[in-house]
Design a protein around this nucleic acid. Structure first.
Length: 225
DNA sequence: CACCAGGCAAGTA
DNA sequence: TACTTGCATGGT
């Protein structure tokens, strides 16, 4: 047998790490967005994109009109693309936004709150059926717009976990998600803060370039972990 | 100047 | 199923 890193983290270790992150960075109160609809828009616009660029794009949208389903769907796709230009991939994201908002309007009969009130499993399937909505975007909407206890896995999460040897770098999305959801209580506050704290940690430490060997994450761990 | 960012889908083998 | 490529602006 070959030693390939520390064992899969236990529930106790995951909670311990959460406590340390919370002490270090404080409550994050994510997602940055004033309304469920703004959270949904931000979730699409931030795909592979730095958040400051998304803020610019959302400011542009707000100048044009209020952020409502009807108002946004009335904007032609080409116009929408120009409004969100600063966040990059603007043509494809304009299409993705319309795909998402069209589905929400249909399934909610024009009412976003009704759409977000669908049962969690049904809502996740509906979101994933939209071209341009993958697992991370869908789960971000479920957790941060609909308040459902669904753990979000993103690049920061994977980076931190794989650096500690808790997952192989090639682990699939659903496997990483299950690691948390099978061990921790299904609590939307816990999942909200945990994911946001991974991002807070990731943003403050160096990137995983080939020249980066030791990031100072060790002090977040219990002595023998 | 080079490199990267809170992904995803479509095409190919 | 696994791997590759296009999408694009703005910050460091």
């Amino acid at each position: 047998m070959t030693w390939d890193g520390p064992a899969t983290p236990s529930a106790a270790l995951l909670m311990d790490v959460f406590g340390r992150l919370l002490m270090r960075f404080g409550p994050q109160h994510w997602w940055p967005g004033d309304s469920p609809l703004e959270v949904m828009v931000g979730a699409v616009l931030t795909q592979n994109t730095a958040w400051p660029n998304v803020e610019k794009a959302i400011r542009g949208l707000k100048e044009k009109g209020d952020l409502s389903l009807g108002c946004l769907l009335r904007i032609p796709e080409e116009t929408l693309a120009e409004l969100i230009r600063p966040c990059g991939y603007f043509r494809i994201k304009a299409r993705r936004l319309r795909n998402l908002l069209t589905l929400a309007a249909q399934r909610g009969k024009g009412d976003l709150e009704a759409f977000l009130s669908l049962p969690t499993g049904e809502l996740r399937e509906a979101l994933l059926s939209v071209s341009g909505i993958g697992p991370e975007t869908a789960d971000s909407i479920l957790l941060y717009a609909a308040g459902r206890p669904v753990f979000v896995v993103d690049a920061y999460t994977r980076r931190v976990l794989s650096r500690h040897g808790w997952i192989p770098p090639e682990a699939k999305y659903d496997e990483v998600q299950a690691l948390f959801m099978e061990r921790l209580p299904r609590d939307s506050f816990l999942y909200n803060e945990y994911h946001a704290l991974f991002v807070a940690l990731g943003k403050r430490h160096c990137r995983p370039t080939p020249r980066c060997y030791g990031c100072p994450l060790e002090d977040l761990l219990p002595p023998e972990a």
